[in-house]
């Protein structure tokens, strides 16, 4: 009962946040994003791409069609990467789950770093001028016009869509929060209190890179990872190290590399993995300093 009462304001505000993001999303489609970002250069477009990535959810199997669609629209390679890097890292389900489990401050810092990571990663890839490392067939594909009668949605319909999304996410996030508490309980029984703090605390400079390197090949979507991260923090892993691990698992993964291999040559995949890994490691240190 007590837990419910203390959680209530957090839950109410996170529901409202999910609703707001879902409502905004009804205006943002990848087709519009293509038009807005096509042929644009300038740092502000990296930021815009990164923020659009945060509000556009897609599963990893859509990364290839999205990538080709963006490149075909004349969106610079770096700007395209800004979108692709941020999208799995920042989304409303993750924000809600993090908010409930690790608090508002750490969540806000996480969102900000996720968006900046996308901007930075994309910008570096842009600077490296790696267009020639995109598979040749990508430039030959013609993206058609969606032959679709789009009825303009009313405010009421948009609100209904957003409400449905809130329901979906609440169902999912609740489950994960409960799994997190249970896992935490199990760990509590087996691992001694503070064992991670002892070996992987803030004063161990290797903890962040090791956590990130372990996380890179692993694949999970972000909400699935949150209970694990929560129980690691419960065992004394610094919040920054845990968040860096979370970012590494969700932003980069072996299955995703295999999917992207269809459209990117090895040099570009290598650069992408390296740049994002190094940025996450720095973000981890930064988190540990701030939090």
């Amino acid at each position: 009962m007590h837990l419910t009462r203390t959680l209530q304001p957090v839950l109410t505000s996170s529901f409202m946040m999910i609703f707001a993001v879902s409502y905004i999303r009804t205006y943002v489609t990848p087709e519009k994003t293509r038009k807005v970002l096509g042929g644009k250069t300038g740092l502000q477009y990296y930021l815009l791409a990164s923020m659009l990535g945060a509000v556009t959810p897609f599963c990893s199997c859509s990364s290839v069609p999205l990538f080709i669609g963006f490149v075909e629209a004349g969106i610079p390679l770096g700007v395209t990467f800004s979108f692709l890097i941020t999208s799995p890292l920042v989304n409303e389900a993750a924000i809600a789950a993090l908010w409930v489990t690790i608090g508002l401050k750490a969540t806000l810092i996480y969102i900000l770093s996720g968006i900046l990571l996308g901007v930075f990663g994309g910008y570096i890839i842009g600077l490296l001028k790696m267009e020639k490392y995109v598979a040749d067939f990508v430039y030959k594909i013609k993206v058609g016009n969606q032959n679709r009668k789009l009825e303009a949605l009313s405010i009421k319909e948009r609100a209904a869509i957003a409400f449905d999304n809130v329901k979906d996410i609440v169902e999912k996030v609740w489950l994960y929060v409960i799994i997190g508490v249970t896992l935490g309980g199990i760990f509590h029984g087996y691992a001694p209190e503070g064992i991670l703090a002892q070996y992987a605390g803030k004063d161990n400079l290797f903890a962040v890179p090791i956590a990130v390197v372990i996380g890179v090949p692993l694949y999970s979507n972000i909400t699935g990872m949150i209970p694990i991260v929560e129980s690691l923090i419960g065992k004394g892993l610094p919040v920054g190290t845990a968040l860096a691990f979370l970012m590494a698992v969700t932003a980069l993964s072996l299955p995703e590399m295999i999917i992207l291999k269809k459209v990117l040559k090895n040099e570009l995949i290598g650069a992408f993995v390296l740049i994002v890994t190094v940025s996450i490691i720095f973000t981890g240190y930064l988190f540990n300093i701030i939090l």
């Binding site: 489609t29 859509s62 075909e72 679709r148």
Partner: peptide
Amino acid sequence: DVEKILNYGVMITPAVVIDGEVKLVG
């Protein structure tokens, strides 16, 4: 086939096309 999917202008899957008209995306 990714090329065929993109020919319909679809970038986020799954999508449903009925008699050549895109009905639903993502």
